[in-house]
Design a protein around this nucleic acid. Structure first.
Length: 479
RNA sequence: GCCGGUUUGGCGGAGAAGUUUACGCGACAGCCUGCAGAGCUGUUUUACCUGGGUGCAAAUCCCAGAGCCGGCUCCA
């Protein structure tokens, strides 16, 4: 049974989709005004793994994650750089696409953009006014927080506390300091759209309500984002959806990931202590970065530092080595023929066990560190047994299970020779040549000509072919 | 001020009352090996912020305190 922590109820609950085995999920995506930092990347990664696990569990997941391509930050940045807001958006959407690939994020069902849904936003704001929860002041439209009794249900901030909050914006147009903007009147030089209240643009929170409803319908199952979005962003989203469409609980489960800290402090653009995802991905193996991002449970804080990533690199290496050992053993069996043994059964048993353990851990609110522990237990079994396993089918099954499970965590174990580039490098002809060289090397080893044997191994290594010896003969792989 | 979260070994990081170890990284030793890589085994292990309390039994539950991090209309 899958149990998930729901911010709305502050407790772990059994996960039951609203409708059958379909899961409708929305995750707040980036505002495309700058390079995402590694903390943003954490959010992308954990929700990708959550999505993949739900799919593994047999749910049909519709996964929507947006690009916010119009807001104050977008406008300010575009002005600073002297370019159009749309150009700015295009630049950072393409940056996101790169990160998506490098972190092995499964593409969303749809990545809607706020500017593509202005009509829907206008319609929602209009409904909010008509239902008595919003008001227009000279082209600015505000949501009237005091009119909405349930306000604060997600963040659990008492209404009267809000007024004394440290950063309540001073705005003379607002009837109440807690009110927030649904629609902002046009200022000179800003992009704007027509509306019943004059030209203007949407407030920050409007888009997510609208796009969630547009692609998923209300209510939907899961809404995810960083913990910093609980208030005000998600609180306001609930208020908008409820006020406009009369749906009290527009989202069944709210998931919020913990922050990524940098040397124990919150990473934040305004504080200047951050690393962009780009810097990190340029400096470290992409897969290792992805693995690092799920080494902590998603709701806990995770610290970013060089040592933490280095450890992930080593952990990843261990997993990959186990996969390589299996592949190596399969190729040896092709050469020496199968000869099944007791160890075949043990490995098959271990493959079954790891699946159970992995599911048990992931079923507990997506406990990725626990799930990894199960995978490492399996890796040890593989390493212990692989040299004595005699059936290729068992090995293929073990490799398939390992690949599938780490795949949920975002690690792609595909063999280097299975990529296009790798396949070109390892044509049958070339394989034959490598095999022949290894035969020569074996002859040299038998006659104790280790100089010759090492020369062959070294030269192959130089051209990217790594040779390893096992008791049943050598194996090789592309490095 | 008002709300949250967090504190576990050399490091990262699970666990939430009970026998044997989470797991990973690092270090050391042994094994395997012509060598190398990888791997296996063992050690590092009386690890659970402090002080009280409840329990036969507490890292785990309760109370108090301390440290750290964060939210309170820019944020993943």
């Amino acid at each position: 049974m899958l149990k998930v922590y729901n911010t709305r109820t502050r407790s772990k609950e059994e996960f039951v989709p609203i409708e059958g085995n379909t899961v409708r999920m929305y995750v707040c995506g980036p505002t495309v005004y700058d390079y995402p930092h590694i903390g943003n990347a954490r959010s992308f990664a954990v929700f990708d793994s959550i999505r993949r696990y739900l799919e593994y569990r047999g749910y049909r997941v519709t996964y929507i994650t947006n690009f916010t391509d119009i807001d104050d930050k977008m406008i300010n940045r575009a002005n600073e750089e002297g370019i159009e807001v749309s150009e700015l958006a295009a630049k950072f959407i393409s940056e996101y696409r790169k990160i998506e690939k490098q972190l092995n994020l499964k593409p969303a069902t749809v990545n809607p953009r706020a500017t593509e849904h202005i009509d829907d936003i206008v319609e929602m704001v209009d409904l909010i006014i008509k239902n008595g929860y919003g008001y227009d002041v000279h082209g600015d439209v505000y949501f009237s927080v005091p009119a909405f009794d349930a306000y604060g249900s997600l963040s659990r901030i008492p209404m009267d506390e809000l007024t004394s909050g440290a950063r309540v914006e001073v705005d003379e147009n607002k009837k109440d300091p807690r009110d927030f903007a649904l629609w902002k009147a046009e200022k000179p030089g800003e992009p704007s759209w027509d509306s019943p209240w004059g030209k203007g643009r949407p407030g920050w929170h409007a888009e997510c309500s609208v796009m969630g409803r547009h692609y998923l319908g209300l209510p939907f199952d899961i809404h995810g984002g960083g913990q910093d979005l609980i208030f005000p962003h998600h609180e306001n989203e609930i208020a908008q959806s409820a006020a406009a469409y009369g749906i009290e609980v527009p989202v069944k489960y709210w998931f919020h990931n913990g922050f990524l800290t940098m040397d124990s402090e919150k990473m934040s653009k305004s504080e200047g202590n951050f690393s962009t995802a780009r810097e990190v991905l340029d400096n470290y193996d992409h897969q290792a970065v992805r693995l690092y991002l799920v080494t902590g449970q998603y709701r806990q804080p995770l610290d970013y530092n060089a040592k933490a990533v280095t450890q992930a690199i080593q952990s990843l290496e261990r997993i990959k080595n186990a996969a390589d050992s299996i592949r190596g053993r399969i190729s040896i069996l092709e050469r020496i023929g199968s000869r099944e043994s007791e160890d075949d059964k043990k490995l098959a048993e271990a493959a079954k066990k790891v699946r159970e353990g992995f599911e048990r851990e992931m079923d507990d609110d997506f406990n990725t560190p626990g799930a990894l522990a199960e995978i490492f237990a399996f890796v040890r079994e593989i390493n212990t047994l692989v040299g004595d396993v005699g059936g290729a089918a068992v090995l293929r099954e073990a490799l398939a299970v390992l690949t599938e499970l780490v795949g949920i965590l975002g690690v792609n174990l595909t063999d280097a020779s299975a990529t296009d580039e790798g396949a070109a490098l390892t044509s049958d002809t070339l394989k034959g040549v490598i095999e022949f060289l290894l035969e020569l090397r074996e002859e040299a080893r038998k006659s104790k000509d280790f100089g010759k044997a090492d020369q062959i191994r070294d030269r192959l290594k130089q051209i990217g072919v790594e040779v390893s010896d096992t008791k049943d003969g050598p194996t090789w792989k592309l490095s």
